[in-house]
Amino acid sequence: MAAMPEGTAGTPVLALEGISKRFGAVQALSEVDLEVHAGEVVALVGDNGAGKSTLIKVIAGVGPADTGEIRWEGRPVTVTSPGAAQGLGIATVYQDLALCDNLDVVGNLFLGRELRHFGVLDEVAMEKRSRDLLHTLSIRIPSVRIPVASLSGGQRQTVAISRSLLGRPKIVLLDEPTAALGVEQTAQVLDLVERLRSQGLGVILISHNMVDVKAVADRVAVLRLGRNNGVFDARGTSQEEIISAITGASDNAVSRRRARSDSPKEATDE
């Protein structure tokens, strides 16, 4: 609702301009722009092969762009490694959760950045911080000391997301967080996305599910064949319009004829 105007007012936390990337003969991304503000959920949608994953990899530092500029809080930066992205404050939650089933929740949350106390794992401090973190995010799991294997899919996803928050990021990238989740579990994850927004984080949400996108996103950025195919206000745009931007259905003979006959509606930019 009010999120979009107030968000677009300030300098975006993360701004991509003219991002292009080529894999051999395939131009995966050409001249893509994207802006994310603090406290804003931007949904990144597009058909398979539209370049979503490539763009995510550019932002996460896994596959840097060939050309184009990335600006972080207004200043140009280079993101050439996952470490650099994390150093800036970009946290990425990949689709295949990347949790260790045999470790408990605390072990997973702190994997790779364990707190230590004279060189020995400080389980007490880690458990306390885990409980505090999960409490702030209103995440309910039976105990932080049970193996992640015993959690439901939605709980696992919330653990994966909260894990990304331990590094105190400003931007969180969520790659299909609700894929393969049930209705109730999806609801839990979407609740969490809203909580991230209310805590002032910028969220980039990749999803194929238009219902989820409409439920939590403030803006919807559509990619089609490696190009921007419009940025929509999620509240003021119908699902059909977004889907036609994704599929390119808006750009055919029928739609052009209809566009001429209808009163001019908001244009999809190039």
């Binding site: 996952p82 260790c100 994997l111 790779g112 950045r113």
Partner: peptide, 15 residues
């Protein structure tokens, strides 16, 4: 333990 549980997760966590 992490590598024994999930190699990819361990790698992404910086192990």
């Amino acid at each position: 333990f992490a590598v024994g549980g999930n190699i990819e997760a361990a790698r992404r966590a910086g192990v």
